[in-house]
């Protein structure tokens, strides 16, 4: 529980405080959800430690994206509990409230605002007061401009800052969405397939970025690409048919006979 000691209650510069006194940032317990009789999530329990980087893998239809939908308020489970820190019941909050509480999400299909420029996308994502009047009066301060500039540098889109996001390639959109996630300054990042559409070099950069975020943030990465998962060198959770099949290091997972039977049919 060293992570808990390092980051006791509130995150740096944040007005929101989150009670992670037990070292766990996300509690999911006994979650079940079914769509038209199909059990997408089946009695799933998962705990993410504060400051941890965790990979979630699993075959198609294992419930990875549904899991993220539940945590971010898009889908309500039929049963179970979901807590953010000790005190925030995620099942009582809507998407906006969950985002404001400090959970950011990158979607599998990168979703950026195509009619806005790259910099404007980042500006909208920037942490700050979200009510209509504040947004109406909002003006970028020098500090905020610097933050946008440094984020652009971090995601390698400096030259494209005034281009419409619709002109970006798939990989660049991925980067932009990661940049938006950074601007939100969330406590917990849910990152769905970040490496899709990226070159090997870009993948390595993404991996480095995600690793550097862990510690200050908790990061949950859903990924298919095993090379990428290996490069993250983090604990792995395997989902299968809506529940947790195995947890551990990637090597341990790969030698697990149960996992091998699911993945390889052995």
């Amino acid at each position: 529980m060293s992570a808990a000691n390092r980051r006791p209650v509130s995150r740096s510069g944040g007005e929101r405080s989150l009670d992670t006194s037990h070292g766990t940032v996300l509690y999911l317990e006994g979650l079940s959800v079914s769509f038209d009789g199909f059990k997408a999530i089946n009695d799933l329990s998962l705990y993410i430690n504060d400051g941890e980087l965790r990979c979630v893998i699993g075959p198609n239809g294992a419930g990875k994206t549904t899991l993220m939908d539940i945590v971010t308020g898009k889908t309500r489970p039929d049963e179970g509990e979901a807590w953010f820190g000790q005190t925030l019941d995620l099942l009582r909050l809507d998407e906006a409230a969950i985002a404001n509480a400090g959970i950011g999400r990158k979607f599998q299909q990168p979703t950026v605002f195509t009619e806005l420029t790259v910099a404007e996308n980042l500006e909208l994502a920037m942490a700050g007061n979200r009510n209509v009047l504040s947004v109406l009066r909002a003006k970028l301060s020098g500090e905020q401009r610097d933050l946008i500039a440094s984020t652009l540098e971090r995601i390698g889109l400096v030259a494209l800052r005034d281009m419409n996001a619709s002109t970006l390639s798939h990989g660049q959109k991925q980067w932009l969405e990661i940049g938006m996630l950074l601007m939100q300054q969330p406590r917990l990042l849910l990152v769905d397939e970040p490496a899709t559409g990226m070159t090997h070099q870009e993948m390595a950069q993404t991996g480095e970025l995600l690793c550097s975020l862990a510690g200050d943030h908790s990061v949950v990465v859903v990924e298919h690409d095993m090379d990428f998962v290996r490069s993250l060198d983090s604990p792995v959770t395997v989902l299968h048919q809506g529940s947790v099949l195995a947890e551990g290091s990637l090597d341990a997972i790969q030698s697990d006979p149960l996992v091998r039977s699911v993945y390889l049919g052995e």
Binding site: E95, L124, V132
Partner: peptide
């Protein structure tokens, strides 16, 4: 204003805007 940017974002991808924490 930034509200104008937000309007464009809501028009093009309303559900995404909610995940940024705005009440669309």
């Amino acid at each position: 204003t930034r509200l104008g940017l937000l309007c464009t974002a809501v028009r093009d991808a309303e559900s995404r805007v909610r995940f940024l924490g705005y009440r669309t």
